[in-house]
Amino acid sequence: MGVLVVNNLRKTFKKNSLLGFKKEEKKVLKGISFEVFEEIFGFIGPNGAGKTTTIKVIMDFVKPDSGEILIFGKPNSDISVKQNLGFLPERPYIYGSITGEEYLDFCADVYGIPYYERKRKFAELLELVNLTGVEEQPISSYSKGMVQRLLFASTLINDPDLLILDEPMSGLDPVGRNIIASVMKMLKEKGKAVFYSSHIIQDVERLSDRVAIIVDGKIKLLDSVANIVQEFLRGYVITVRKRGSSSLEVLKVGVDELWQLLERLKSEGYEIISVEPDRLSLEEILVSYIQENRRAG
């Protein structure tokens, strides 16, 4: 069984109008199911598709109408599961008046980390996200990216087995994104599970083992990145140059005809410069799902 199991999640938000006569209902989640193992699991979808709501339900901030969530085999309302969990909300914020060290101290207090271990642990974490030396300054003096990196580091203080991140990449510069991506990879190598949502699809494609695409409260696609790439492969683009000539030629070929073509080109005396897959990117797949959904709706 997976580290995180989400089973048939449904959630409706009710909005009472002023006098309470007419109740507006909005179905946000329409039966979401997936399972996360020791891997990096990307959760993508357009704005308003239900990514954040799903994560709030997983974290027990919001109660679902129906459905079941198991973390490490226990229901998510069990406080003990959070002992081995790390969570970073979307656009995270912490009081500007306290220092970075005071916040890390708070986290260490919660997990009962003894005082003699703290100094070493904090140094390690800050090193990981490239923030060494700023821990004694108030958080209000940090840039937005620094706050996000600090809070990301603080989620690792209890050495969690499952990390849940809501849009960890947004608001970060490329360097910051790289830092977080490398930490995520490192965690995966240690056998931890990372579940994260993002709308920066290139990152998801690069990082994730598996992705789920959520559109309008339903999961449209759930598969490994490798499989998706295979499935949506249309062919290859081959760049060649005739021996002796200086100009390049670009050829397109179907999936099955690649080898035949290569053999033929070789025999005809072409030099092969590059062979690239011609496929739908994750982004194009997402866009096609959204458009499909719009036509249906």
Partner: peptide, 14 residues
């Protein structure tokens, strides 16, 4: 309103 409560409640605190 500033979502600090998410950070706090994601920890093993009731």
């Amino acid at each position: 309103s500033d979502r600090v409560v998410y950070l706090i409640l994601s920890k093993p605190l009731k």
